[in-house]
């Protein structure tokens, strides 16, 4: 066992992850209380005609398995509720997702609900990638006219002409911020600077597994109103969506979550076996000495 080459472990992990993907099996996800809070908040949020929800996609292709799934389920929920969503990013590599994810969600919803239409400009608007890091957030929070601040959408259309955004004036018209990122320090930027005098928007965050411990700090202090913890959070959110909208087409979050669950069990098993072997070898060494 001590001579086992790590390549065999890589192979075992790859197999554990692949089998549920190939067989397309999924088990019901575990209940995630923080994701429940996010779901309940979005289910109950009341949006005035001049208000929007701002979704920040601050993730690149490398972490799209977790953040992409979260973005899809939350955006789907907002679109089902016909809440206008403005999408933007502070991270250049997220730019393709600002276009592809809402289009994917809208086409899925239209296939599920024949006769209903989800349109760009009415249900969502893509503000694109905005360079400038915290300066963008600080300026946005202090802007007296956020339509003029952004000026144009990602396709060079004037925001003043876009129905979803036309009536939003200040940051106080952003009823909710959904920030999805696994980048170190990105959430903190929003918590630091995305607020106006007398107004702090409610924040829902989607994080990767590696940043869960950091995000819990803000959930505990009340700076976050809801949290989607990695794929498990997305899978539970998706399960809640399907409960409320039974016609919802199965998405990938639950299958990915099952794959990860199998791989985690394998890792736990390997840790136990490795420790047993190490202890037995140590005892044998002491006995021989």
């Amino acid at each position: 066992m001590r001579e086992l080459h790590r390549r065999w472990i890589y192979l075992l992990v790859a197999l554990a992850l692949s089998v549920p993907l190939i067989l397309r099996v999924s088990v019901p996800p575990a209940r995630m209380r923080a994701a429940d809070r996010a779901y309940d908040l979005i289910r109950d949020v009341e949006i005035a005609p001049h208000q929007i929800v701002l979704m920040a996609f601050d993730f690149g292709p490398n972490i799209k398995a977790e953040n992409g799934s979260q973005a899809e389920v939350v955006l789907e929920h907002l679109m089902r509720r016909r809440i206008p969503v403005a999408l933007f990013s502070l991270y250049v590599q997220a730019e393709p997702f600002l276009k592809s994810i809402p289009e994917k969600v809208a086409s899925r919803l239209m296939a599920e609900n024949p006769g209903e239409v989800w349109r760009y400009g009415e249900d969502w608007v893509n503000l694109g990638f905005r360079p400038g890091n915290f300066l963008v957030l600080q300026s946005l929070a202090r802007s007296e006219d956020i339509t003029a601040f952004f000026g144009k959408d990602a396709f060079a259309n004037r925001l003043a002409d876009i129905a979803a955004f036309r009536n939003a004036k200040t940051v106080k018209d952003i009823a909710l911020l959904v920030e999805i990122s696994g980048l170190q320090g990105m959430l903190e930027l929003y918590l630091r600077f995305f607020r106006a005098e007398g107004y702090v928007p409610k924040v829902v965050h989607g994080c990767t597994s590696i940043s869960i411990p950091d995000a819990y700090i803000f959930l505990d202090s009340g700076q976050l109103s809801g949290l989607l913890e990695g794929i498990a959070g997305a899978a539970w959110y998706s399960a809640r969506l399907r409960k409320e909208y039974p016609r919802q087409e199965a998405d990938e979050a639950q299958i990915l979550n099952t794959s990860l669950g199998v791989a985690h069990l394998l890792i736990i098993l390997l840790v136990i076996v490795g420790n047993v072997v190490a202890v037995r070898s140590a005892r044998r060494g002491v006995a021989q000495a």
């Binding site: 992990v13 992850l17 799209k64 977790e66 990767t208 597994s209 590696i210 794959s259 791989a263 890792i267």
Partner: peptide, 10 residues
């Protein structure tokens, strides 16, 4: 570890 698995599964 969980995050690395998530990268691989995608």
């Amino acid at each position: 570890v969980m995050a690395r698995m998530a990268l691989l599964v995608e």
